[in-house]
Design a protein around this nucleic acid. Structure first.
Lengths: 212, 212, 212, 212
DNA sequence: TATGAATGAGGTTTCATTCAT
DNA sequence: CATGAATGAAACCTCATTCAT
């Protein structure tokens, strides 16, 4: 016998999260602009009005999604990278592998996918993401590279530019897959990418003795 | 009835291009969605109806913009990279410097900027861009890396993944600036970025003898 | 289980009135349409549901407000005007001064202010007001004017039209202030208005001997 | 054979006025809030979009209606009242009779009726009306009363308050009819009202020798 | 009694596109 | 070729009201 399904069901508890889950699904399936608030409500099994009870606008949905997912990961990564002493190679490798392990969980990966797709249309979200994630992570990474140089582990370089070399390949990898559907043979293979990249990052692509 | 003056005829022939110029400007200023066809027409100094005489829809404008700008650069880069024999370090460095010189021209830079911003919303454009640019450039770059490895210039690596290490940092650099307004102190400095990156790319970040 | 204290019980009994007080305040501050039932409930310190327990609809609130306030004043004025014998100048002057004294109490004044603002939108209220106030006061005033004429105190006139001359200036005075924010220098000054008006009403504006 | 009725008819000329006519009709029939823009469009025989081509918002419709109707009458009245020299009785009587003659045209009367009904809900309109009409007419009338006093035609009084005695009865007369449906036996009879009122206004209600 | 979570109808406004002229 | 008046679908959001608890 099926559960009774009255017009009014009171379940204050997890409702906002269920709405966000539905929204995330739909935003990824159809894009933010093409998703109606009514669709989100229906998928979450609630009424349109209830969505507006929890979130003041459609845009607030995307913000809440990002906020919910992004903060814990960023904090974890920052903790990770400041934790390791000595050769920054260990710290950076560990953090990148941690990031990859998180991104490999499709559930977790969905949010960066959403950000890639929609952030350019929502300066508000871009600013939020910058404030909550980038402005925290970039200084930490830059400082780690700087210290690695000062402690003699790393060759002279400009840490501010180098961090782009550290992270850029990962971003491009995801971007090519997400936006253009371009993946290496055998699937995304984030772990293989990272190993290949780390090896080049620290040891260079040239054979020994080639250094100019 | 007298012939129209050549001056007038030339204007008429250049009309579609003027419309595209206006559209590109506005799409960058306000974004595609926030730009009205009427705005494009006004900026181009024509009527709304005329825009529809040249282009069947608003989306066709963005496609035409991309098409017009992207093809010549891609072809040039491909020619460049296959031209250099011997150590691929020369080829890759030359091509990246060429790309940077092109991107430093704000006029040229505008189109990639537009693509970054809008491509995620237009799968159609993404496919077009993939077909006309990526599917041509990626195999060439991959082949060059492969040959460099086979000829003993480069250490063993997966060329398909390595090309992400080669290009990713440049992409991230532009992206951080374009989407999040994050630039190194002293401005974009694409050339400094490339030099810093190429040095790491070929020689690694670790000091000599650190190789693991 | 102990009896609830009388204090609590009295509160419970006064609840509907407290709701009306809150509603009146808010309707005047923001207007009827712009006031949400939830706002009324919050200001009254009760829940939205309770408001609907006492009043069947939002519109019922405004009706109850008017009903509660209007009846006693109207009855008092009617009593007043029929009380005075002889020269109706005394009766009319006394009643107008009484009205002014009541209207000068901001607490009392609020309800006519609300009516001025909202009555046009609510034919229902207009009818109620007509039935409970106007249809009682107008005939009394008209009869008084009629008798004053018959008894030789007043010149010949049409009492039905004259009553508009008697009351109109007071209405316009409040209206200008309430709707358009137009007041004489020195504030509303209802008493000065009435004295100026009564003097003209009975003796005319023209200097003696000017009668045409 | 009926006129061809193509989907697109080009008739830029009188369109805005036709839209305003339709809007006025509907606002009076149903009230502003209860009238949908779509209704206005349909009654005017155009599309909803066209309404927004001429008027930026629904509220702009009511503003345009008031502006269109009110300005010429106000200007005419002001001219009238400043025109007459000598005894202000002539000036005031003439103007009031002029106003009555205008208001007796149902076409013209509609706009004041609309204002009475809706002005309280739209502070914007109230301000506009005050600026364009009241702030022009009141000073003129006050000055005329002042001069009449100085020149010895009128007894001492406060012109700022007296003008409320002059105009208030007319306003109340229309208001009683419009809002409450209260009219003297025999219909509105604006002209009878004015004659009754003017007689009282200048000569007073009391019989001669009664002056207190 | 009392609560407040939940509902859902309803209307303004925008703007890509069309087509009579 | 060129215009710009005209169309109308589409969607966000509000809020009075309901009812399970």
């Amino acid at each position: 016998m099926p559960e009774k399904s009255p017009k009014f069901r009171r379940r204050a508890e997890a409702r906002p999260d269920e709405v966000l889950d539905a929204a995330l699904e739909l935003f990824l399936e159809r894009g933010f602009a093409a998703t109606k608030v009514d669709d989100v409500a229906k998928r979450a099994g609630v009424s349109k009005g209830l969505v507006y009870l929890y979130f003041p606008s459609k845009e607030a949905l995307i913000e809440a999604i990002v906020l919910r997912a992004v903060t814990p990961i960023a904090e974890r990564a920052i903790g990770e990278i400041t934790h390791f002493q000595g050769n920054p190679r260990i710290a950076i490798s560990t953090v990148m592998r941690f990031l990859v392990s998180r991104l490999s969980d499709p559930q977790v990966m969905n949010v960066p996918r959403l950000i890639f797709r929609e952030v350019a249309q929502f300066p508000h979200i871009a600013q939020m993401y910058r404030r909550d994630v980038l402005d925290k992570m970039i200084p930490v990474l830059r400082a780690r590279l700087q210290r690695g140089m000062e402690e003699g582990y790393l060759r002279p370089h400009d840490p501010d530019l180098t961090l782009r070399t550290v992270v850029g390949p990962l971003i491009l990898h995801v971007l090519l897959s997400e936006i253009f559907g371009i993946e290496p043979e055998g699937g995304l293979a984030l772990d293989r990418l990272v190993e290949n990249h780390l090896s080049i990052l620290f040891d260079g692509l040239s054979v020994r003795g080639e250094r100019s």
